[in-house]
Amino acid sequence: MSEPLLSVRDLSVEFSTYGRTNKVLHNVSLDVPAHSQVALVGESGSGKTVTMKAIMGLLREPPARITSGRILYDGADLLTMPTTERLKLRGTAMSMVFQDPMSSLNPVFTIGDQMGTILKYADKRLGRGRGRRERMARVHEVLEQVRMRDPERVTQSYPIQLSGGMRQRILIAMALLSEPKLLIADEPGTALDVTTQAQILKLLKDLVEARGLALLMITHNLGVVRETSHHVYVMNKGVVVEQGPTSQIFEAPKDQYTRDLIAAVPRLTGGMQFGRAEVGS
């Protein structure tokens, strides 16, 4: 792989609650090269989301505490960077696609208001002098890029007026507003039916490839990973137990936990993996 855009090195995190301290990440290391698609895989409680939150600076400290490690973005250590500089990167150089649109979107504001506000603050961080009309033109442009048919109507709508698939596309559009280099997608489409989820994952993959972005996909679904990632990291109990090219992980897994995950993927008749069929539909 090429030089990493994002590099996590020996990251350890612990949580202290009710007088007890639990270490939840143990010397986690992973790389996301520029223009690559990387998956971080594991079951619930494996440490995927804690890793993602540490990268994005979203851990609540306390109760969380990063006890060791480095998180490098484009060579700069996010953990030693001044807070103002790190905030400038969040949502601009690196953006999140969250898994639950209904909890991520504010029900009392229109989509246009929410996207316009995100872009306004991003412009402020980057020193851009864009007016409201220009910002809304950018919002409509990005909505078209995520294949929303009527951007004008969508911007005037409230989240409850849109389908689950449309809301998920809006979260992708929000992440793309400021043209980041890195997208971190946290279980996108999990709450959707399999057909809509497949469409969302294909859209995300197409956008990442067309824009030359780096993608870190956080997921428990190995069926998704096979079609959307070049490289895979497998986590179990806060430890990266195996990593390698996607083909290697699926065809010759070394760790028993990885083999168990692959064996747990449901299959259709004829031996085709359900997850793979879902993504390719």
Rank of each mutant, 00 (worst) to 15 (best):
H35R: 12
G45P: 00
I66E: 02
R90V: 01
S68R: 11
L25G: 11
P62V: 04
G75H: 07
T49Y: 08
V28I: 11
T92S: 15
A34S: 13
A39R: 02
M56R: 05
P33F: 12
L40V: 04
P63G: 00
R86W: 07
S68Y: 03
L79N: 15
K23M: 08
I55V: 15
N27K: 15
Y73M: 04
T92Y: 06
Y73H: 02
T67E: 01
G42N: 09
L79R: 07
T84L: 14
P62E: 03
L89Q: 08
R90G: 07
S68V: 03
I71W: 01
R65M: 09
G57C: 10
K23P: 11
V28A: 13
P82W: 05
V28S: 07
L78Y: 11
Q37C: 09
M52F: 12
G75W: 08
T67V: 13
H26R: 14
M81L: 15
E85I: 00
A39T: 01
T83I: 13
I71T: 00
G42M: 05
V32E: 14
S36W: 09
K88G: 06
V41G: 06
G42V: 08
D74L: 12
M52P: 00
L58E: 03
R70D: 14
A34V: 13
T83P: 01
S44R: 01
G47M: 10
S44I: 05
T92H: 04
A76C: 05
S46K: 06
L78Q: 10
R70W: 01
N22W: 12
H26A: 11
K53I: 02
L79H: 03
T67R: 08
M56F: 08
D77N: 14
V32D: 12
K53S: 12
L79T: 03
E61N: 11
K88S: 12
N27W: 12
T67D: 07
R70E: 14
E85A: 03
P62Y: 05
Q37I: 06
A34P: 02
P33E: 15
L72W: 04
V28C: 07
L79I: 02
K88I: 00
V38G: 06
D74F: 09
G75Q: 09
V24S: 08
V24P: 03
L72N: 04
L58P: 08
K48M: 10
P33Y: 10
R86A: 15
G45T: 05
T80F: 08
P82L: 00
R86M: 12
K23R: 15
V38N: 07
L78W: 10
E61S: 15
S36G: 10
R86Y: 12
T49F: 05
A76E: 15
L30W: 10
V38Y: 05
L89S: 07
L79P: 05
R90F: 09
K53T: 04
G42F: 07
M56K: 06
